[in-house]
Design a protein around this nucleic acid. Sequence first.
DNA 1: CATGAATGAGCTTTCATTCAT
DNA 2: AATGAATGAAAGCTCATTCAT
Lengths: 207, 207, 207, 207
Amino acid sequence: MAEEDRKTVRSQVKDPDLIRKRHLQIGIKASKLFAKKGYAGSSMREISKATGITIGNLYDYITKKEDVLCLVFDAFYSTWTENLKKHGVFDIEDPAEQLRAAVRKMLELVHNYQDMALLMYRESKHLPKDFLKITLQKETEFIECFEKILKKGKEQKVFNISDPFFAASMIVYQISFESLRGWSLKGRYTDEEIMTYLEEIIMKSVT
Amino acid sequence: MAEEDRKTVRSQVKDPDLIRKRHLQIGIKASKLFAKKGYAGSSMREISKATGITIGNLYDYITKKEDVLCLVFDAFYSTWTENLKKHGVFDIEDPAEQLRAAVRKMLELVHNYQDMALLMYRESKHLPKDFLKITLQKETEFIECFEKILKKGKEQKVFNISDPFFAASMIVYQISFESLRGWSLKGRYTDEEIMTYLEEIIMKSVT
Amino acid sequence: MAEEDRKTVRSQVKDPDLIRKRHLQIGIKASKLFAKKGYAGSSMREISKATGITIGNLYDYITKKEDVLCLVFDAFYSTWTENLKKHGVFDIEDPAEQLRAAVRKMLELVHNYQDMALLMYRESKHLPKDFLKITLQKETEFIECFEKILKKGKEQKVFNISDPFFAASMIVYQISFESLRGWSLKGRYTDEEIMTYLEEIIMKSVT
Amino acid sequence: MAEEDRKTVRSQVKDPDLIRKRHLQIGIKASKLFAKKGYAGSSMREISKATGITIGNLYDYITKKEDVLCLVFDAFYSTWTENLKKHGVFDIEDPAEQLRAAVRKMLELVHNYQDMALLMYRESKHLPKDFLKITLQKETEFIECFEKILKKGKEQKVFNISDPFFAASMIVYQISFESLRGWSLKGRYTDEEIMTYLEEIIMKSVT
DNA sequence: CATGAATGAGCTTTCATTCAT
DNA sequence: AATGAATGAAAGCTCATTCAT
């Protein structure tokens, strides 16, 4: 209880199943609200309305407004990783094939949750210190997935890169391109073009 | 530059020189504050303290808090473009040489104003509509500088890219890598390593 | 009276009984404050103190300071019309008798709520447009009560007037005489004298 | 200097002619502003703009914002009495004729300065105590003009009134009818009709 | 005398948070 | 567990007034 402190959002309620259910409910509904109005721009009243939980009851499941943001990040990572596991990307043997599949899958995911990716960049500043650390840890683990693929490809001499981790970081970064810079491309390119170009650029950068 | 700009932030004060001076003062000091506490998280009283201008006087130079953010963006673009012009990047003939020089220069700039790049991504949401349009225009012009280099290189067959504008957008995006994802690299790489790797990756992506 | 009114001042609070109670409380207490210091001269903090409702809670029952003024007008008209109905003025048959009774009753009322009449003249400028319309409508209805009496009297040749509505307007105006010009009479006449003279003048003006 | 204190608005400036000129200028221009936006609703900045005197200079002729209101009242009484003297109302011998002439003249005056009359009712609350006393004195003197006419008429048995001063007060009050209640008549009556009816009612009230 | 930049108290309003029911 | 009324600190912004030039 002392060391494991703050790994999750504290709640007054006893029933753990109810807590899980409500926490997910809050995270999902609030994420849509935050995407539209931002974290600071959303009041607890609005969060209450969006989640369908009265304001007093909301505070039975959280202790501060920050917690709602943590729940949003939690919910996001849940759906994100879940979606990724469903498609057996990591079963592919050929590194180039595998990388292309992973990148394409991720691009689709980011495309579908565009606001979310942007949201996480924008609002991570408001996360409490200890939760931020956890988040960064999760991101690092995510990068390491790509690092693994790159390392294998480098050993097999199919990839020509100097530093696998650095390259993996850049790939993960590039995947968010549409979310963060999409506005400067909208009108010039179709969604499919954007994803095709991105895939192409990323693949070329490693070969 | 003196007559045509500053139509966006109106002030009560009549002396145009004083306005320019104070606007710059506000933009620079507030940018440091915003980088630390964010736009929404910084109160007008804090901005007043940071700029050294009393709150009432501050409102002689702006009309809304938004305006401070505009001044931050303004100040940023001023120093940014100014710095870029100083080094005769656009005199270089060889496209590859030219691109490398431009990228390296920009990487150094972004490195020195790290918080700023992140700030601009994070807070552009809070810009008023009309000012946002101007900002996007400035960004597009910036991208087009790189597009021009890429086009020339493509014609000379030194660059192998399918869409120069898209590639230019990606390069500009990659240049901000350190600002937006730097935390995942800190501790693993020195500043110099980061810039060298970035330069290498960007150059490879076009050849 | 319960369902149809109070569409003008919206509140966050859900319990309609509580809303009615608080709205009346605000209207009455604020009216005394406004009479003393004027609408513009009374701060929300003072209104809060005067009503005994904390400032945040106050804003659960109103949306703008204007609303407080509306509630003052509401409360005034409520007590005004209520008081008038209590005394069966409109049952009297003889027009002259009826007019004299109505005037006398009104004079007493205005005398008891002296500051209020003055307040309403002074502050109606600050009412929001739509509410002002409602207020004027209520006043017109009030004038029409007197118009009706005058019309009947004119038909029965007991009153000698050229335009009943105009005359009714003037009577209603004269009734507020004490509120608006009382200061120039204080010291010269007793309260009872003022009312007697007023009654006399008004009655003579129609015969 | 001790007893006569505060009879007028104090000024830093030495030249008495300039003071008079500026005071009148301020009073006239500010009156139009106050009529539109009210005393409390007009800022010193607006007053400065309306008068064409810079804010600092303004404070060379006044000491507080209140003073501007005093100057408005002063300017008003100046033009008012001036206008009244021009027409030789007080030379008429027959009391009824004289009263009718005075009333008609005043009605025209009030009609032309409608906003002003309303303004004075509304804003007299904001006058400093000592100045208010002077204002009331001036008003009383004005009422006494009518009282004199009524007294003469009463002695000659052409007027049938019980208390001349009270009746005079009421007449002065009725003269402002259009200013204070005009909105409820607009649309129903022409300006000329209003004045004719008013004259008729007032004359009947004394005979 | 005139100018207008500077001051800071005070205004209206919002909002995270608590707590009696 | 759930409700929503109540709290008050703090936010953005205005404005009468001063004062150096």
